[in-house]
Simulated assay, not measured.
Amino acid sequence: MGQRAYLGTRKGLFQCDLDEHGGNTLALVRFAGDPVSMLLHDSRDGALYAALHLGHFGAKLHRREVDGELWQEIAMPAFPARPPDSSDTFDWTVQQIWSLAAGGADQPGMLWAGTLPGGLFRSNDRGDSWQLVESLWNVPQRAQWFGGGYDVPGIHSICVDPRDSDKVLVGVSCGGVWQTADGGASWVLSSTGMRADYMPPELDENEAVQDPHRIVRSQAMPDMLWCQHHNGIWRSQDGGHHWQEIGGAPLSHFGFAVAVHPRDGGTAWFVPAQADVLRIAHDGALAVTRTRDGGQTFEVLRNGLPQRHCYDLVYRHGLALADDGRSLLMASTTGGAWYSIDGGEQWQTLSAHLPPVYAVCFATL
């Protein structure tokens, strides 16, 4: 059985069909010329969501129904008016949707969205309306958040616990890890164990200024989470309450993307890069690293990836793993795209000439 995948790029939405023998088709299917900043395929009802970042025209959100061809523009998350006496220095305007996640299986229609600046929004009607999660927006520690790569902080990772849909974990750059156990009514800071080399030594363990570049959760082992941090790889085995730094990763601890096996929480993939201002593939050669034993050892996977004069960077949402635990799709800011049908052992080039890629996702055929 084949896999269908989508790539959100600076110049539109691309669709790719991959077969089990390594064949593929690739086509620009929607939003030609428009930046597609985020994608979500909702496996509960088959809908596909695409967020657009249109500059002067603002951010937009579109939905396509399962097996449909027509896209419908739906509501965008929006902040309330900023109180006149607010000391907040950030503009309360959604600049971009930086993450989208479906609610639990028992929450039909529930969606979560993370934005720049760092707002978390919830929809109960498949994106037809949105509400700011004010309990997180109003935490006192938000005054310490700052931009990591962007001028403002943003929420890029949203992890719903498959055992309890009221338990949600989010990652903020730069604002650390936050959790709710009551559907968003209250939040606790949950970055214990992380450290930030970019801060003065006396502040490097401050939980509210950590920069978790990306956080993912294993669906079958939901207490196992992996984080690619600005200056390291971290793992949690207790649902994100405590984090352990993983030493010994080859090439570099820096990177953005991480994927975890849906049924084996000890297996995860990373895309190392050179930090900080370089933001390029390590030594001009693209590689993916994989651990299959919870971070005790790592393999470097290069077969089929460019190994000379390669300066590609893979963003936070530029690496996706299909539900089969074997099919991987990876795409870069330089317009390169690669896929693997064997867990990364061998990669095939999908394209070397796409627009810069912001997000990729798989969808069930």
Rank of each mutant, 00 (worst) to 15 (best):
N138P: 01
K167H: 15
Q219F: 01
M194R: 14
G184R: 00
G175S: 01
S186P: 00
L169Y: 01
S186E: 03
T180K: 06
L189A: 15
C159K: 02
V139G: 05
P201Q: 10
D223H: 13
H156F: 12
R214S: 09
G176D: 02
D166E: 12
H156V: 13
G183M: 04
T180I: 09
R142T: 13
C159F: 00
H229P: 02
G148I: 08
P212T: 12
Y198P: 05
G154R: 04
C174A: 15
V152R: 07
C174G: 11
D204E: 13
R214E: 11
S191A: 15
Q144L: 14
E202V: 06
Y150L: 14
C174V: 14
R214P: 00
R217T: 05
L225H: 01
L169G: 01
R142G: 04
C159M: 14
D164S: 06
S186D: 04
P201C: 01
V139E: 12
W226T: 08
W187P: 08
P162E: 00
M194G: 13
Q179A: 11
Y198I: 13
C227P: 03
S165M: 05
W137Q: 09
L189V: 15
V216T: 08
A181G: 09
N231E: 15
H230N: 09
D166S: 11
M194P: 07
D223M: 13
G184Q: 00
W145I: 03
H213K: 05
L189I: 15
Y150H: 11
L189P: 14
K167L: 09
M194T: 11
H213T: 04
P140D: 14
E205Q: 15
C159Y: 00
L136P: 03
G176L: 05
G183N: 09
E205D: 12
E202K: 09
S173C: 15
G175W: 00
Y150T: 14
Q210R: 10
Q179D: 06
W226K: 07
A143Y: 10
A220H: 07
N231H: 15
A208C: 06
Q141I: 11
W187Y: 11
Q179N: 06
G183W: 04
A208I: 04
P140Q: 10
A143F: 10
D197Q: 14
P153I: 01
P222I: 01
G184A: 00
H229T: 01
M224Q: 02
P222E: 02
G193V: 10
L225P: 03
S190F: 12
K167F: 10
L225F: 06
V168G: 03
D223C: 09
H156I: 12
L203S: 10
R217I: 06
D197W: 12
R217G: 03
D223W: 09
V139Q: 12
L169P: 01
S157C: 09
G154E: 04
N231K: 12
Q141A: 13
T180S: 14
A220L: 06
S218W: 04
V160K: 05
C227Y: 03
Q144I: 02
F146A: 14
D161V: 07
V188G: 12
G193M: 10
L189Q: 15
V188I: 15
V209K: 10
A196Y: 11
D161F: 06
